[in-house]
Computed example of a mutant assay.
Amino acid sequence: MKYMLMVLGKQADYDAMSGKASSGSPAWSEADLKAMFDHMSALNDDLAESGEWVDGQGLTEPRQARLVTAGADGAPVISDGPYGEAKEVLAGYWIVDVPDFARAAEIAARAYACPLPEGAPHYPVVVQPVDTTSGTET
Rank of each mutant, 00 (worst) to 15 (best):
L59F: 11
A86V: 12
D15C: 10
A102P: 12
P62A: 04
E61Q: 13
L43W: 00
D97Y: 05
V68S: 11
D13C: 12
W28A: 10
A108T: 05
A12W: 09
Y83G: 15
I107F: 02
A48S: 14
L116T: 13
Y123E: 12
H39Y: 00
S22T: 15
D32A: 02
G81V: 01
N44W: 01
P99L: 09
A105M: 12
V98R: 04
E52Q: 05
V96A: 08
I107C: 05
D73W: 06
A113C: 02
A109M: 04
S18C: 15
G19D: 11
V125S: 01
A35N: 08
I95F: 12
A102C: 06
T69H: 10
D100H: 03
D46S: 02
A111I: 00
K34H: 05
E88K: 14
A120P: 08
A72S: 10
W53Y: 04
T69R: 05
S79C: 09
D46N: 05
F101S: 15
Q64N: 15
L116W: 12
P121N: 12
P76W: 01
R66A: 09
N44G: 11
W94S: 01
G119W: 02
D32Q: 01
P121Y: 04
G71E: 08
E49S: 11
S23A: 14
L59G: 04
Y14W: 03
A108W: 01
W94A: 01
S29H: 03
D80I: 11
F37C: 08
D55I: 06
V77F: 13
A72K: 14
E49C: 05
D38N: 12
V96P: 01
S41A: 10
A21K: 13
A21S: 11
V96N: 03
G24C: 08
A102Y: 10
